[in-house]
Structures are given as C-alpha cells and as structure tokens.
Design a protein around this nucleic acid. Structure first.
Lengths: 325, 325
DNA sequence: GGCTACGATGACAACGTTGTCAGGGACACG
DNA sequence: CGTGTCCCTGACAACGTTGTCATCGTAGCC
C-alpha cells in the first residue's frame, strides 16, 4: 500500500480510501491510485485488515471425520454454500475420528480466529472448547452432541430412522433381524443401536431374536458377524451406516444367502444394484445448511438459548427391504 | 496478551517468550505466565503473528469444481494429508465450473495471503493469476492446464486412458463405438474425446463408425444420445466421466439394449453392479498428493522450471467391457 | 572494590491496515 | 477582507504480535 501511495503520489490513507470505496476522494486522484494499484498488482492484506478492524476473519472452521466420505463431502458442500451467502470461506479438516487430532485442529482454528466453528465431535470430551465458547466463538456441533459441552447441535433422527427400518422389516414378516453397527463409542452408532432395540421391542420381536454386531468393522469382521447371524436363522439385516452397508453388500455377493436388507444412510447407485437397496435416507447437504444456518445466526448476534435440531430420516423402499423371510 | 501480562505481573514481551518457548525465561516466571494464560483462556492471534513475521499464513487455498463430487472429495483428502504434514490448513471452495466465481474465489484466497494455491481451472483464462504468480504465490493447476498461464500442472492421462478403453472394446470385437463426453469446453472432456478419436483410428475403426455426443449432459440428453447411437447399431459405449457413466447406467436400466460399457473414472460400487462396470481408473487422492507435493516444494523455495506431471490411468476390467457385440 | 559476563526482563518499533482528527485550499457570504 | 463551510487530503495511533536492543541485578574473577 505504501508503494502504491508513493507511485500515485498520495498518502497511504488515500489509497486505503480508494481500496475501500470510501467517499470523498477526488475522481482524478482515485484514477491515479487505481492505475498504481493495477500496475503494482496490489492486493489488500486481509490479515492486517482483520487485525485492525477487530473481530472477523470471514472464515469458519469445519472439522469432520473424513472429507472423502460422501456423507461428509455432501455436508461440506452444504456448509460452503451457506458460508458463501454470508461472504465467508470455509477452512476444513479431517480428524479421522481421532480425539487428539480433533482437539489440535479445533484449537488451531481458534488461534486463526475463525468467526465460528462447525464440529463433528470425535471422542466424548470436548471440554477444551468451553474456553473458546466462553470467549465468544460460536460453535455448532454436527451429527453428534458435544458431550460435556453444550452448544447448538444439529443431529439426524438416528433412533427414529432405525426404528422405522425395523418396523418396515417386521411389516414384511421378519422376526429375526440382525444389526451391524459401527463402534458404539460413536454417538450415532450407539443411537442407532438404541433405535434398533427399541424398534424390535415395539415390533414385538422377542429378545434373543435381535442380533447386534457392533464395530468398528472391516469386510472380515462383517463376514464373521454375518455367518454367526445366519447360523441363528437371521432373515433380515440392517447396515448401520453407508460404509457398513456397502461392506455388507460386498460380502453378501460372495455368499448364498439373500436376506432382506436396509441400509442407514443413502448412497449413490443404491437404486441400480440388484436388488435395489432400501435405505434410511437423510440429506447430508441439508445437514450442512442447517448447521451453517445456526452458526451464522450466532455469528450475527443471536444469543437465544442453545437449540437442538433433529433432522428427519425417511425410509426409501427400493426392493432389498421388501422381501419376505 | 496484554491481559495475560498484567495478570502475571510481567511485560507483554515475556508472555510472548513463554508462548513461543523461547529460552531465557525464569522457570518461576514462566509458570506464572502459563497460569495466567490458562485462567484467561488466552490463545495467540495467528493473524497478528503472521503480520509481524511476514509471509506465511500456514494455509493453502484449494479451488475445485464441487467438493461433493467423489472425485474432488478424494482429491481434497489427498491435499489435506500432505498439507497437514507441512503444518498447513486447507481453505477450500467450489467454483461450480463458473469462471467468474472461480476468479473471485482465487483472488479472495490471494487477499488472505495463502501460502499457495491449488486450482482446478474453470474456463479458459486464468490471466488474473499472472500477477499473483509474479508476486510470488506458488500455483499448481490440477486436472486441467492453466491455459494462458504457465505453472506446475498435474494431470491425468486422459488421452491414453480413453485410447485404452477403445482398444479394449475393439479387442472384444466392437467396431461401432459411442462416446458420451462432457462439455468439450472442459479440458478433460476435450482430451478424452481426442483419445477416443485417436483410439478408434488406431483400432482401424472407420470414421463414421465412431459416435461422440458431447455434453453437458443430463439423463434426458443421455437418453436421446443413446437412442441415436442404437439407431446406428452402436454396440459399445464409453462414459466420459463418473457422472455421465452413472447417468448412462440409469438410463440403460430402462432400455432393452445391453451394450458393452466402459466408464472413465472409477466409482464406488462399480464392482457390485450387474454386470460389474469396467472402468478407466485413476486415483484422485494420489492426484491430490502429487499436486500438494509440488506446491509445497515451491513454497519451500524450489524454483526449477515448471513441470507437468501426468498420472497414469489404468483399465480395470470387471465385466461390462468384456462382452462381445 | 572494580571489572566483566551472563541471565532475565522490558521498552520500543514494526508488520499492513483503518479510524480519528486536523490541516489546507477554494468558495461563498457578510 | 474576514469568516465560515465544504471538500479533499494526510499525520498519527492503534489492532496483537515479535525482533532488536537496552537495562538491571547478580555472580565470578582478578
């Protein structure tokens, strides 16, 4: 800016005025300044501007498990869209479900003075965020609650969705149902398991005819879980998330059994498989929209009490869940 | 920092020393400072630090078409991993293939003084980047060259991949092959079309027995392109990218014809479809690794001449591409 | 005792901006 | 001609850090 000022033969402040479209600059002067800016390729240093003006960095932090998982990339896209509407950029990072990394990344975001933080919590404790929240950084938890920290939260209806799946299978005559879920340390996995149990109870399925195998899962563990379930005459399966459902499909492709199947999380091509896969669907992008919406409301000063938003899940029947035992 | 200094009864400089683990602070003093930091929840302002220290913001900008497309989210993940190794965060944004937005986002990244820029160019002209590059911001183009701007570039072997697909189909006896590609304004689409033509020539397929329908495509346009091709007795198809291949599969599901099919871009579940889909595969994450690798080399001062890297594509035969006419 | 050496600390400037306020010239009016 | 007003412009401080250099006290040495 100094260089621009020198070249244009004006003071640095006048350059600032031109850059910011402030009124009260002679048109002739402004032209000279603009010419100087052009010829020097000057670009205002946002960092310095933020420092001077105080709070905003026009950036929000998004911390999730893994961008390359379609669920999270859809979510990211949703966040990005809302952020753009509010003139913000998104700083994103994947924690790989590792609490230590998550903590480190979140604190790094704070040190960068993001305007707000969207977090898919990894692990049970987010206590390290309490100080940041007190300091005024708005935080919204996505997909899982913050545990020991209270803040706005946007969740899926995990319990309701799984109950719906069980009811659907029971409605088609299944009485022995297996659930393959993720590590129950993960909130959504525990919730879906809860939904599974409750759904079974409500459908009048006797205890002992419901089988749950919780993860973490790879194809090998899915295979052994499946064999154990088939040994006990399970006729229908529920996949606890998109990874597991796809793993299930892959393993089942090499087995003779063709149980009914419902997956939690919709996924691309589910409708083109044979049979097409019935799923409990929810909208990752909508989740991003909702969470970012809350965050920007907070950023703009909304200080109403914390709100928990639960987005609905819906059953999409496609075939695999509508077969008789 | 001021507050911390006051509370600890030391000068602001001493706090700075403690925060930066500089030597020469009495242990007792350091403890007091740390206690003050803890109790005030102080976190160093990265923006101010960057301003003072000069260049780095420990951030790179990643500009792509759409994070929610699995190809790009895989790429993003690759970039993120390398960035983390180098202690950087990733600021990402989707341009939706709109040159105006792309320009705006890229310049915004520059104004934030990112350490480097990874760009999947949208549109033909990236001239606005020339000034930034001259000013010393390293830029790496991904997936498409920069057109009027020269910088490091990391590409896929689009021509070779498509030629491979044609050769594979010809090897199975196909003489009338259709190619459904994206908008030829897009570099990769044009390259793949070129590969298709060259592959046909090399396979001795007479001109007039190769049919290309370029996009942009939706299911409707794919449908009409397909009908036109079948009218001319096409027996094999190549899908020009993951979106188009999936569109093709969806449209074909409602038609009686079962042509041979090879898709450019691998996609999840391709192996579970019936028949499993043969694809030209490449590794999006590897692309991200390679591009970020180049970028950080530049950031660390590598000023060797610009380099163009072309990552190989490979044919993954799964069934759909191995059927006779 | 006077000297150096060293360890611990602080004062101050600077990074690139912008907000505040004051200065200076042109012009109109009494 | 003096005065007030308006428009344009610039000097200066400040944002939160860190680099440079100076200061101070104490210990060690001759």
């Amino acid at each position: 800016m100094n260089d621009v000022a020198r070249l244009a033969g004006v003071s640095i402040k006048t350059v600032s005025r031109v850059v910011n479209d402030e009124p009260g600059v002679h048109e002739q002067t402004a032209r000279q300044v603009l010419a100087a800016i052009e010829s020097l390729g000057f670009r205002r240093n946002m960092g310095a501007r933020n420092l001077r003006q105080g709070v905003t960095t026009a950036t929000v932090g998004l911390l999730l498990e893994d961008v390359s998982n379609p669920f999270y990339s859809g979510l990211t896209r949703g966040v990005e869209e809302v952020a753009r509407q509010f003139g913000r950029r998104v700083l994103s990072a994947s924690s790989d479900e590792d609490p230590v990394q998550a903590r480190e990344l979140a604190l790094d975001f704070c040190a960068r003075r993001v305007d707000g933080l969207l977090i898919v919590p990894a692990g049970r404790e987010q206590g390290y965020l309490a100080a940041e929240i007190r300091a005024g950084t708005p935080v919204v938890f996505i997909d899982r609650p913050g545990g020991d920290v209270t803040a706005d939260t946007v969740l899926m209806d995990n319990v309701g969705g799984t109950m719906m799946a069980v009811a659907h299978l029971a409605g088609h005559g299944h009485r022995r149902i297996g659930f393959l879920g993720d590590d129950p340390e993960i909130f959504t996995a525990a919730e879906r398991l809860r939904g599974f149990r409750r759904g079974c109870a409500r459908a009048g399925i006797e205890r002992g005819a419901e089988f749950a195998a919780m993860g973490p899962h790879d194809e090998h563990s899915i295979g052994s879980a499946l064999r154990a379930m088939f040994d006990r005459s399970v006729t229908a399966l529920i996949g606890g998330n998109n990874r597991i459902t796809i793993g299930l499909l892959r393993v089942l492709a090499g087995m003779p059994e063709r149980p009914a199947l419902i997956g939690f999380d919709d996924f691309e091509l589910a409708d083109l498989l044979d049979p097409p896969v019935t799923v409990i669907a929810h909208d990752a992008k909508a989740l991003g929209h909702a969470a970012a919406g809350r965050l920007f409301a907070r950023i703009q000063g909304d200080d109403s009490p914390h709100r928990d938003l639960v987005l609905p899940a819906r059953l999409v029947p496609r075939g695999s869940g509508e077969v008789a035992p």
